[in-house]
């Protein structure tokens, strides 16, 4: 009985190790795809769907520079960009040096079968506590990621690829994130009561926010100044 158990454990360790190696290989391939891009500027149409924010579709520019700089700027208008949009750049996860990866099996995302890879950073300095990537093994792109951060909760990212798949860049991203309650103390705003707030009170309990960006006109590897990323 003891022998059987030991044999089973050995097999499991060997299989696990082999599979961990396999997913790390897969991640490396995906990263290589990403590494083709040093920087890009893209036009985007950003939709914000947060319960307490009523904003129009915004025309934004998305700036990226390797390894992890990303900035969304609405040049003409106002946009409330969630701070978690840093996570739409998967280099945050793919660029980790010290991590453990586990094969989570296979799952279909929007009809495409994906390999589920669970990543656990081993360094305490990382902001990410865990991440799950859903990788299209054929095209070597990530279609979905769920990233748990230490400070800002969990972000879920859905990516759609079409025109820029050669560079591993999505045509559309949908970022879901946790939001905090919003309610001003009474009397500050002295609002006109049109009856709408009575319905909002219940809906506030659903705290998920969503931002969707549809990209166009990627300008890839043409150089992006660092000043774009400095906070103003």
């Amino acid at each position: 009985m003891k022998k059987i158990f030991l044999a089973f454990l050995m097999v499991w360790i060997i299989v696990s190790f082999a599979s961990a190696q396999e997913v790390k290989e897969l991640l490396k391939k995906v990263k290589n795809q990403y590494d083709l891009v040093n920087d890009y500027v893209a036009d985007g149409k950003m939709k914000t769907n947060v319960l307490f924010i009523k904003a129009p579709i915004a025309n934004v520019k998305v700036y990226y520079k390797k390894p992890d700089k990303i900035k969304i700027i609405n040049e003409k208008g106002i946009s409330f960009v969630p701070k978690g949009t840093i996570n739409i750049n998967l280099n945050n996860v793919l660029g980790l040096d010290n991590y453990e990866a586990i094969d989570g099996g296979k799952e279909k995302i929007n009809g495409t079968e994906c390999r589920v890879v669970k990543i656990f950073p081993l360094s305490d300095e990382e902001n990410i506590s865990r991440a799950t990537l859903y990788i299209d093994e054929t095209r070597l792109v990530t279609l979905k990621s769920v990233i748990s951060t230490k400070e800002h909760g969990t972000y879920e990212l859905l990516l759609t690829f079409k025109n820029y798949i050669a560079f591993g860049l999505p045509d559309k991203v949908e970022l879901s994130f946790n939001t905090k309650d919003y309610k001003l103390p009474k009397g500050i705003s002295l609002d006109f009561d049109n009856g709408a707030d009575k319905d909002k009170a219940d809906k506030l309990k659903n705290k998920k926010g969503k931002v969707e960006i549809v990209y166009s006109n990627y300008s890839i590897n043409k150089g992006v100044s660092d000043t774009v990323f400095t906070p103003k």
Partner: peptide, 19 residues
């Protein structure tokens, strides 16, 4: 000029500048 944001007790309302 610019887009207008109005802060209410329970939500923010944003309008395009041309609106």
């Amino acid at each position: 000029q610019g887009d207008l944001v109005v802060f209410k007790e329970m939500d923010w309302h944003q309008m395009n500048s041309y609106d």
